[in-house]
Write a protein that binds this DNA or RNA. Structure first.
Length: 478
RNA sequence: GCUUCUUUAGCUCAGCUGGUUAGAGCAUCUGACUGUUAAUCAGAGGGUCCAAGGUUCAAGUCCUUGAAGGAGCGCCA
């Protein structure tokens, strides 16, 4: 009796001579005899050998790229050089035909831009199936990391009534008739008649809600979609992206950095152990792609070596002030090669400065801390100098900012003073301030952009290629 | 939002200083071959040159506007 097996299982423990049933999609069919079958369980394909003499020619004629088939046959050692084992087909059924003259995926290389336009089919390519298997492994390992350390997964709301988070432009959520909205006497829209009885938006961050939970459950994290209506057109921004936001009570900035560094290294190690085939495939893809680029633009080390390097080395930790001094004395700054020359303390760092620190100066991941309070959010804890806040950003080579976090301001008076200075309405945030009124304590957390981590680990260069259906300005296809 | 580049066959691209009938590779189809690995060989089909307007005897080629896409910057994760 043939047992139904995934291609991954067959390669993991092949039983030569045993009868197998496999199902998947045809990648290529060579010489009317050799079918490369993929079922998505692994980046590898399984070779199905069809007997030309005993198989109905009409059936053979339907074995085309993209067709879904079910095959029963015997696993044998392959006579060919390209694979160790193969299935000698005894029974082959076409489940879903595919007409190659109109099927968009041809047995040839396609550009990532073209595949982005047919995102509903790009799962069927080696590259994208590898990316999404790795994406899954990253998500799973993040949950495992936190679970193993006693964190609780908090589901923060996606529709929010709070508009004071200040993390970015928000998408409004409404059921009002946009052509004829109810008005107040002064002509403004009357949101009391809206679904929730007030104006609501899609969340830009689950952090404030995570803080509420942390001040009771001690160690929590969120992992959910977030939405920013910013008109950002770059290779590392999405309007809809997934964010991981741990929050820990009785923790300071150093605890926070340790947690973030441990988590990133854990995920890197998990992927190297569990996605070796996919990472190897993605590494080869990257190498091929970079062959046509000048040496200076190529990756300094192969993908897997880069991941190992980041997992094995301490991240560099330095303060904003130290970073400014390094940048001020750097060659590109003195020679005015930077588009924005660093003149004095207090300037916001541009991506060219972050790239210089990470890729040229230290050549490893960098954690920058203690930024000027004026360029950071209201909830970050004010340092003793009254001038900087206990913030930290983790910068990765090729990606830039991957983590942004801070120790939170737990002192009610100092928090309210900051909110006043930054024009944040206190009434709106009363629920948040309650945590500081009752049983406040030191706490800290950070936000990790999930897709940026997937970008880094897969070696891809456009964030639109590491999420199944990217949402960007002017584009919400599928 | 700003800067810049691209748009020609299903895909990736070439097309010179504006000049006769629009080019290649791959893919597709037909045939041959058959233990292939980007299979091979022979042949065939396939074009609103992104759109609109303009300059010109003549526009794929030059100009204007628009659309779509890429890259960089800003905002950030």
């Amino acid at each position: 009796m043939a047992k139904l097996s995934s291609i991954k299982d067959i390669y993991q423990s092949p039983e030569i001579g045993a009868s197998y049933k496999v199902q998947g999609w045809v990648r290529t069919f060579r010489g009317n005899q050799f079918c490369a079958l993929s079922d998505g369980s692994t980046v590898k394909t399984l070779q199905i050998v069809v007997d030309r003499d005993t198989t109905d020619p009409e059936l053979i004629n339907k074995i085309k790229t993209g067709a879904a088939i079910v095959v029963t046959g015997t696993l044998v050692e392959s006579q060919g050089a390209g694979q160790s084992v193969e299935i000698q087909a005894q029974e082959l059924k076409i489940v879903g035909e595919s007409d190659p003259s109109v099927y968009p995926l041809q047995p040839k290389k396609h550009s990532l831009e073209f595949l982005r336009e047919i995102a509903h089919l790009r799962f069927r390519t080696n590259t994208f199936s590898a990316i999404f298997r790795v994406r899954h492994a990253i998500a799973f390992s993040i949950h495992k990391f936190f679970n193993d350390r006693g964190f609780f997964y908090i589901h923060s709301p996606i529709v929010t009534g709070s508009d004071a988070e200040g993390a970015g432009e928000m998408f409004q959520v409404t059921t009002l008739d946009l052509n004829n909205p109810p008005k107040n006497e002064d002509g403004s829209i009357n949101f009391k008649e809206d679904f929730f009885g007030k104006a609501t938006n899609l969340t830009v961050s689950g952090q404030l809600e995570a803080e509420l939970a942390a001040l009771a459950l001690s160690k929590v994290y969120t992992f959910g979609p977030t939405f920013r209506a910013e008109n950002s057109n770059t290779t590392r921004h999405l309007a809809e992206f997934w964010m991981i936001e741990p929050e820990v009570a009785f923790a300071n900035l150093v605890d926070n950095m340790d947690l973030a560094e441990d988590m990133l290294k854990y995920v890197l190690n998990y992927c190297m152990e569990n996605c070796a085939d996919d990472l190897q495939f993605l590494q080869n893809r990257l190498e091929n792609e970079e062959k046509s680029k000048p040496m200076a633009e190529r990756s300094p080390m192969p993908l897997i070596e880069k991941l190992k390097f980041c997992a094995d080395n301490e991240f560099v930790r330095l303060t904003y002030t130290e970073a400014i001094n390094i940048l001020k004395n750097s060659k590109p700054n003195k020679k005015k090669k930077f588009q924005f020359v660093i003149e004095e303390w207090g300037a916001d760092l541009q991506s060219e400065h972050e790239r210089y620190l990470v890729e040229k100066h230290f050549k490893k991941p960098v954690i920058l801390t203690d930024y000027p309070k004026n360029i950071k959010a209201f909830y970050m804890r004010l340092n003793e100098d009254d001038n900087t806040v206990a913030a930290m950003d983790i910068l990765f080579p090729g990606i830039g900012e991957i983590v942004g976090g801070s120790q939170r301001e737990e002192r009610l008076d100092k928090l309210e003073k900051r909110m006043t200075e930054m024009d944040i309405p206190h009434e709106e945030m009363d629920w948040f301030l309650d945590t500081r009124r009752f049983g406040t304590c030191e706490h800290a957390g950070f936000g990790l952009g999930f897709e940026r981590l997937v970008l880094f680990i897969t070696g891809m260069s456009n964030i639109r290629d590491v999420i199944p259906f990217p949402r960007t300005p002017g584009n919400a296809q599928f």
